[in-house]
């Protein structure tokens, strides 16, 4: 699999009155063509800012301090607004958490879909409509031709998210960044959308970065998993392998705190303390103050080191899984 997206040493900071917020620090990863990569972490871990940085959507006071984002062989960091704009939506698209905030309430779905096409190419009215209908049909909206005349409020939450996904698909991008696309939806609707997104990725060969805080959701769509903590990737590898035998104590802690990991009624194993402030990170490994395995040498930031298909940022990793 050739790398479609190559992120190297990406660092994004926000200059605020309270100091520099180190939202993303030295993040490196690749996404292959047609691959679904899961990016998990808790609030403030930098997972969404990573997505925004890739698309060049970080506004002041935020800025990409260093690093490189290569997409289909082209460097995106440092590219002008116009160039980024013509690429966004056509080669790379994003689906956000809240579809009621991303769709324009005063335009019909058809109008905003045609705008999304017109932003990138000149297409005749009939051809544009045909493409809109096709995109809506792909995401499972029945009676698509008629629904084009409806406004967003005439759709349910799940249907609105489908419309947002259809808009992302309109120009057949090579990569879609999905930021918690099913978090606001009910489980039954979430199951429908997860199933459809997976089959879409397989059918159209679209690569995806699936950002979420929910390990179970990510594990059911992605093939590879990146775990972020306080702005850095702390563990990476094939989904099942990472979840079966995490090497970083934080990943282990996150898994242990899930109710499904304990017997009903039993106390959950909780990670002590809370996430450090991004303006005031502890010296060395950011997880050190909460880590049960922390030692003196953790006061120096460990590098992301590889072990076969797996990588982790820890000097005292948990044992590798015993060969089954």
């Amino acid at each position: 699999m050739s790398a479609l997206l190559e992120v190297r040493g990406l660092t994004t900071h926000f200059d605020t009155r309270g100091g520099v917020l180190k939202a993303v620090e030295d993040v490196s990863f690749e996404v292959g063509e047609g691959e679904i990569v899961g990016l998990v972490g808790e609030s403030g871990s930098g997972k969404s800012v990573t997505g925004f940085s890739i698309l060049g959507l970080v506004d002041a006071p935020g800025r990409i301090v260093s690093g490189s984002v290569r997409f289909a062989g082209r460097e995106l960091v440092g590219l002008g607004h116009g160039a980024l704009r013509s690429m966004r939506g056509r080669e790379m698209a994003m689906v956000f958490q809240d579809p009621s905030a991303t769709l324009n309430p005063v335009l019909t779905v058809g109008q905003q879909m045609r705008l999304a096409i017109a932003a990138h190419e000149r297409v005749g009215e009939a051809a544009a409509t045909a493409r809109c209908v096709e995109a809506l049909t792909i995401v499972g909206i029945p009676d698509a031709a008629r629904r084009l005349e409806n406004y967003p409020h005439q759709f349910s939450g799940g249907m609105r998210q489908r419309v947002a996904i259809a808009i992302a698909l309109l120009n057949r991008p090579k990569l879609i960044i999905c930021d918690e696309p099913t978090t606001a939806l009910d489980v039954s609707i979430q199951a429908q959308i997860l199933t459809e997104m997976k089959s879409l990725a397989a059918r159209l060969g679209t690569a995806m970065i699936w950002i979420s805080h929910d390990l179970a959701t990510v594990s059911s769509v992605a093939s590879r998993l990146l775990v972020m903590y306080a702005g850095r990737i702390i563990e990476a590898g094939p989904v099942a392998s990472v979840l079966r035998s995490p090497r970083h104590p934080y990943t282990r802690g996150l898994l242990n705190s899930l109710p499904s990991m304990a017997r009903p009624g039993q106390d959950l194993v909780q990670i002590p303390g809370s996430m450090p402030s991004l303006a005031n990170l502890p010296e060395g490994c950011s997880f050190r103050p909460r880590c049960p395995k922390a030692q003196e040498d953790c006061k120096v930031m460990p590098a992301l080191t590889g072990d076969g298909a797996r990588a982790f940022r820890c000097r005292h990793p948990l044992d590798r899984e015993v060969a089954a």
């Binding site: 349910s156 390990l215 179970a216 594990s219 099942a240 979840l243 899930l258």
Partner: peptide, 27 residues
Amino acid sequence: RALLDSVPKLVTASDELVTFKPIQGEL
């Protein structure tokens, strides 16, 4: 039954095939 089947489960085996049986339609 349908609600229980819709809940994503943690995938821990690499050959595990994730299949949902989503409830048809909406509320």
